[in-house]
Design a protein around this nucleic acid. Structure first.
Lengths: 119, 119
DNA sequence: CATACTGTGTAGTATATAGTACACAAAATA
DNA sequence: TATTTTGTGTACTATATACTACACAGTATG
């Protein structure tokens, strides 16, 4: 559960490293602003190692991954999304619970229709 | 920001207390499972005092308030809602950001249509 | 008027979160 | 082969989170 995040990013990083040597633990860690030993711990799923949202975002950027996905894998939700929900908790909590078991395509249809402004 | 939660529940509790003397800080605290001095701190907005989700839920139940609202006021989002989002972060983060500026009635229409199963 | 109940101040605790700093042996590179 | 560079183990730190325990003075109740 906590472990998938580590495995996921280690995997991605090593695939990038095969093409570009600058994707070592050390260099990625430097670029995202943590100590290499700490990123190493994260990748190996150390239960006492966590990253803040900004570090996760920096890592996502560096690895070319979606920040929302990496945040989710480390048990977090983007602060901006949280704020939207907290401003209208009744509305959004209800909506999200309602959409829980909807298939992706149904939710995507909503997204599209909302974006196209038929509301 | 953190303070509104305290003021909100103190207000509600005192209104209930006017009708029913069992809504003292002490008794409510007992029922929700914390020390009275701690609930007192919470109500006065002590920045070093926080409640976990279950305590907030117990408090909401006791005061007849909506748990999602009290959670939001203390800067949290219900764990079950968080989990729904984390299972499909791309989908839900996108949807929520898209709905950010939609008026309530538009979001409610979506909720209704989804519930009535036109999807 | 005694006593029970009230709200709150002070002090202390445990665990979670989010890291740094440095050393070391193995592997890769020049 | 000398020297970088690599990943990681160990030890340490600071702040946030989530409380308890108890004492105390003021207020209300029997």
């Amino acid at each position: 559960m906590k472990n998938t995040f580590g495995q996921y990013i280690r995997d991605k990083r090593e695939r990038l490293k095969a093409q570009d040597r600058s994707y070592s633990v050390r260099q990625v860690a430097m670029r995202m602003g943590v100590e290499p030993s700490y990123l190493s711990k994260i990748e190996r799923g150390d239960l006492k190692a966590y990253l803040t949202e900004d570090k996760i975002r920096a890592l996502a950027e560096d690895l070319g991954e979606d920040p929302d996905v990496l945040l989710a894998l480390s048990g977090k939700i983007s602060q901006d999304v949280q704020e939207i929900i907290r401003k209208r908790p009744l509305l959004f909590a209800q909506l999200i619970r309602e959409l829980k078991d909807m298939p992706d395509h149904a939710v995507l249809r909503i997204v599209r229709e909302v974006r196209d402004g038929d509301w």
